[in-house]
Amino acid sequence: MNPHRRSPLVLVTAFFVYFFLYAPIIALVVYSFNASRANVKFEGFIPSFSERVVTEGSLVKSSPCGPFHWYCDLAKNREVIEAAKNTLTIAFTATTIATIIGTMAALALQRYDFKLKPFSQLSLYIPIVIPEIVMGIGILTLFSQVFGWMNNAFSLSGDSRWTMGLGTVIVSHIAFMVPFVTLVVQARLQGFDKSYEEAAMDLGANEWITFRRVTLPMILPGVLSGALLAFTLSLDDFVITFFTNGPGSTTLPIYVYGLLRRIITPQVNALSTVWILVVLAAVLLLQIVQGRESKQHS
């Protein structure tokens, strides 16, 4: 018997794994073309193009965008655009700052010995293991306390008052991202021989040039993976954002949650589809960049 023959069990397992991974996504995409406004059952694609939107009960009969009706609908939705802008602003800002802090922390933990080092290392896991909702409430309590004191102490009122908003969301995102970045970069640093840095210094590079020309390029794949992980976590985050956002800082997950409480139209599916495409594109881009780099290195 051929020892390499696949057991039917492998095929069955594979089928279920892929089914549960991808079937919901496929359904989601298909439903974004649903003619039914109620979006409970798939009622077929929107059949035709027309000058105006024609509806019949809860069914859309024709639309200027044809089957892409809900995408056009989405593009006209100012709230969605605003939420997308917020989401990206938060993700980019928080990722940049968290990547810098996280990388610095990883380097410090690798090269220095200090008294509280075991505690520092352990404390990295705390934001990862504690329930997000606990962290969210914690951050909310902290912000409202501190803001209360500040507003009182400086007797601020009206627009100059410290309130929840983009700033608080960004800070709280940084807080939960840093440990992820640090752990990913630490994993990369494990195999990093300090003699590379010594060699650079030996050849006349000071500490900063050594970091910029040698250390950073060598650990860059780790830093990028850490940043990407942090970025996707930020795009996705609902719980912490829910507790720390305020007027003008609604993100896409928060917006979708709000929609769901009112009415679910295929617009939500259209939004999710666009979202998936964006994230997919980002991941592919990173893969290409990393692939090119590792090819250069080997």
Binding site: D193, S195, Y196, E198, A199, A200, D202, P217, M218, H297
Partner: peptide, 11 residues
């Protein structure tokens, strides 16, 4: 210095 591991910059 010539290092035991050579420490050539891989990138």
């Amino acid at each position: 210095t010539v290092f035991q591991s050579y420490a050539l910059f891989q990138h």
